[in-house]
Design a protein around this nucleic acid. Structure first.
Length: 585
RNA sequence: GCUGGUGUAGCUCAAUGGCAGAGCAAUUGAUUUGUAAUCAAUAGGUUGCGGGUUCAAAUCCCAUCACCAGCUCCA
């Protein structure tokens, strides 16, 4: 969270201190509650508590009042150190603190911070006294597993935020409210882009005509661009026998995420595809391949099915059926770097065109060597592939963070990450390097030396999953899409009934030119029609009355800049053709 | 899957065990409109679905489905 007056790291200290004040207040009100941890986050702080009865909204109010007292008391905050044995004695009765202290390596300082009658194990640093926190708010209470492991007990987490003055807090809360208004889940329904039905089920959104329109535009754009870049489109089945997934490793490493049809003992068990890779591999395997054929770049606008757990679905961002701009490049080891580079270039081009390029970050997702059973292949293969990938990334001068345990089960990934309007990060696009599956499927090519060799495979997406990308576009533009993407580009608004025929002629002409046009022939005043069109975020409104009809012109109003004046229809058409061609953001 | 919350008209929300309501949207009529809301009337409901408690349930309890926040998982 950016802040004009305080640097981010100072805010972290500020928030961390507030989390101690929160824990202090909870301990005063509910002495039996056990303390877990309470760090600062990117945008505030939280503290995890182990409590028999979960906190209610009323409790939060009480806790806030108690925090106020602690702040008013202006308690000095003091740091002190203890030896391990002393520390363990000090936190007697706090099992989570004991566990934390036991995990601290011998010889490392064990520090505590004390404010009044409360002291907490903490690396610090902290503010000098509790009264420095002038404005704070507890935002929510949720469940969270101890140490982020679902095998552990679920604790109660209280989230909050704080600032050095009331105004900054109010501004922050206002920003949160504004962000909510951009939430794709709300805007997407308001703008009739999608809906859901409890009869259809969770994670299965229905794309309404306007949402489907945007997806269609994106899809055509993506497929055309991929064709230009040497991709060949495939159309592979939505399901396959379990045999296929047994070879790919999905059966052993991805089964929880799949919709499986049939039961143990059935002659054939089918499963809906969670990924397209093994299907496109069958296309490759349909005949003998020479090194001269490579690289082969397959793309597919792929409908995929993943059986996400019930609590994980979210609007269009996490769903059970989705459409991935998927593709697999089969290449020689020598071609790998170029193909990776090309994939990244394509993804970057897409992001730039959509205006999302400034909003993404890169993550190099590696395997977790401690969790071998999650992956196929040997440690040597993993290390080797990861090293190759890292050197490619470094040569491309990509600014990435490394993440252990985030790899696919068959290979490491470069994930292009983006945050939604609530600050939650998700993967938008991913590019993966894979040597394992080519072996498992016995994919080969005859090299120049006459030897059969296994190719490398780049699994890649170009624009990501259309549903998720659409969600992020809705939030990015608050529903006001660039002209080339807008489901309705122009709305013709006749002043009165007298002008319906002229409005019809204008709309027909625009339609014939390929624009997406609507007209508003309701018996309403022009101000009302403008208001409606504006709320629907239509980029251009054309007002048609006596004057325009006489002169064969239109009065142009843009949703962004308001009245633009009168143009001939030809002038208007030329202008928006240009805007669409350039995909102006 | 887990923790907590929510579910009332198409939408946003009221009704704290005692007659289900408002605004917007919709429909009809009047108005013929010049750059972000014309006026009036009408209609709209087995309170998500299913059980239970009660003389009486939108309201309390149980179960279930969906949605929201978060955890875990993930594109």
């Amino acid at each position: 969270m950016s802040n004009e007056f305080i640097k981010p790291d100072e805010m972290q200290v500020f928030w961390h201190t507030t989390s101690h004040i929160l824990a202090h207040a909870v301990k005063r009100l509910y002495p039996e509650v056990k303390l877990a941890i309470g760090p600062a986050t990117d945008s505030g702080f939280y503290y995890d508590f182990d409590t028999k009865t979960p906190f209610t909204a009323d409790d939060l109010g009480k806790i806030e009042k108690e925090m106020k007292r602690i702040i008013k008391e202006g308690l000095p905050i003091e740091r002190f150190e203890l030896e391990k044995s002393e520390a363990l004695e000090f936190v007697k009765g706090e099992p989570y603190k004991i566990e934390l202290i036991e995990g601290i390596p011998a010889g490392e300082a064990i520090t505590f911070y004390r404010q009044g009658d409360f002291a907490d194990l903490c690396a610090g640093p902290h503010l000098g006294k509790t009264s420095a926190v002038k404005a704070y708010k507890l935002l929510s209470v949720t469940g969270a597993y101890w140490r982020g492991d679902e095998k552990n007990k679920m604790l109660q987490r209280i989230y909050g935020v704080s600032f050095p003055d009331r105004q900054q807090l109010d501004e922050h809360l206002h920003r949160l409210e504004e962000a909510k208004k951009r939430d794709h889940n709300r805007l997407g329904r308001e703008l009739e882009l999608f809906t859901t039905s409890e009869y259809i089920g969770q994670g299965l959104p229905i794309l309404m005509p306007k949402g489907a329109r945007i997806m269609q535009i994106l899809q055509r754009f993506v497929e055309d661009e991929e064709e230009k870049r040497g991709y060949q489109l495939t159309k592979t089945p939505f399901m396959a026998k379990s045999d296929l997934y047994k070879i790919s490793g999905h059966w052993d490493h991805y089964r929880d995420g799949m919709f499986i049809m049939g039961k143990e003992g059935d002659k054939e068990i089918f499963a809906l595809r969670p990924m397209t890779c093994p299907f496109q591999f069958q296309a490759y395997l349909s005949k003998m391949r020479s090194y001269r054929d490579l690289p082969i770049r397959y793309n597919e606008t792929a409908t995929l099915f993943r059986n996400e757990a019930s609590g994980e679905m979210h609007g269009l961002i996490r769903v059970r059926q989705f459409t991935l701009s998927e593709g697999h490049i089969v290449c020689t080891p020598e071609q790998l770097e170029d193909e990776f580079r090309g994939s990244l270039d394509l993804a970057s081009f897409m992001l730039k065109t959509l205006g999302l390029d400034e909003d993404v970050s890169f993550r190099f997702s590696k395997w977790d060597a401690q969790n071998r059973e999650k992956y196929i292949g040997s440690p040597e293969q993993w290390e080797n592939t990861q090293n190759i990938m890292r050197s490619i990334l470094d040569r491309l001068e990509i600014n990435y963070v490394e993440a252990e345990g985030e790899a696919a089960f068959y290979g490491p990934k470069l994930d292009i990450q983006i945050k939604n309007v609530h600050g939650k990060e998700d993967t938008l696009i991913t590019i993966q390097v894979d040597f394992q599956l080519a072996e498992r499927f016995e994919m080969e090519y005859i090299d120049a030396d006459g030897q059969k060799k296994h190719p490398y495979i780049v699994h890649r997406s170009s624009i990501g999953c259309y549903e998720r990308t659409l969600a992020l576009l809705i939030e990015k533009y608050a529903g006001a899409f660039p002209l080339w993407l807008a489901p309705v580009q122009v709305k013709v608004l006749p002043i009165s009934e007298k002008h319906f025929d002229y409005a019809e002629a204008v709309a027909a002409r625009l339609q014939a030119c390929g624009f997406r046009v609507e007209k508003d022939t309701r018996n309403e005043k022009i101000g009302y029609k403008i208001r409606e069109a504006q709320k629907q975020k239509v980029p251009y409104m054309l007002i048609a009355g006596d004057k325009e009809e006489e002169q064969g012109t239109v009065s142009v109003r843009s949703r962004k800049d308001g009245e633009l004046g009168t143009l001939t229809l030809d002038e208007f058409i030329t202008a928006i053709q240009e805007e669409i061609k350039n995909k102006t953001i």
